[in-house]
Amino acid sequence: MSQSDFALWVYLSRTPLLWLTLTIFVYVLADRISAKLNRNPLANPVLHSVWVIGLILSFTHTPYRTYFEGAQFVHFMLGPATVALAVPLYAHRRTVMRVLLPMIGALAAGAIAAMVSAVLIAKVLGVPHDVLISLAPKSVTVGVAMGIAERTGGDPSLAAVLVLMTGAIGAIIVTPLMNAVRVRDMRARGFALGVAAHGIGTARAFQVDIMAGTFSGIGMGLNGLLTPILVPVFLPLLLG
């Protein structure tokens, strides 16, 4: 790199513009590939964009803080997008109202199963006590999980890592798992995914089927209300 190229790089790498542009283009590419592969779960666009950008940051010695100054504009849209879930919910309100009881049951079952099984499996495998606390809220959306971890004496950053890993795992396993147990009802598939794997699951659901996406959004929203109540109740029992 010549001196002037380097100066240009130093200038650009510090502007939010470069990292925002990179985020969008890496995602567009990952999404195109995912679409070309018929939305194969292993071609998950979030997963692949994340490691590609992570590699670029590490090669260019760019601190996350610098990257986030650009990427925050995309990150910020999570809030309005969550509000926007009301639109498909409204459009499908009749279908939703017909399965209100199944949704309430599946919400309770999915939320409790996620928390109890995660903590118990990890406990049996010898994961330390303080990590188990941060593991309990792993199925809800990241902001809520961090708040729960904070209130129950866990580590919010660790909780965030576990939440995002859970989302990626859910988005990858849901299609093969549901096909294996022959569940074709997109309402059930979507709803269970939203409860178990929050927004990353919902993002996957919207790419596969609008009905699955709608129900996934409802599952995610309802679990965001239920898990903050469940964790403080169940955690002492599970850790005891």
Binding site: V99, L101, P102, M103, G105, A106, L107, A108, A109, G110, A111, I112, A113, A114, M115, S117, A118, V119, I121, A122, L125, V127, L135, K138, S139, L162, M165, T166, I169, G170, I173, V174, L177, M178, V181, V183, D185, R187, A188, R189, F191, A192, L193, V195, A196, A197, G219
Partner: peptide, 22 residues
């Protein structure tokens, strides 16, 4: 391991109860 199995268990529990009540 805990994350993978618990996510699968939560998905299966969710769809099973949804289908039953549906």
């Amino acid at each position: 391991v805990a994350l993978i199995f618990s996510t699968a268990i939560a998905l299966l529990a969710g769809v099973a109860v949804f289908r039953l009540l549906a």
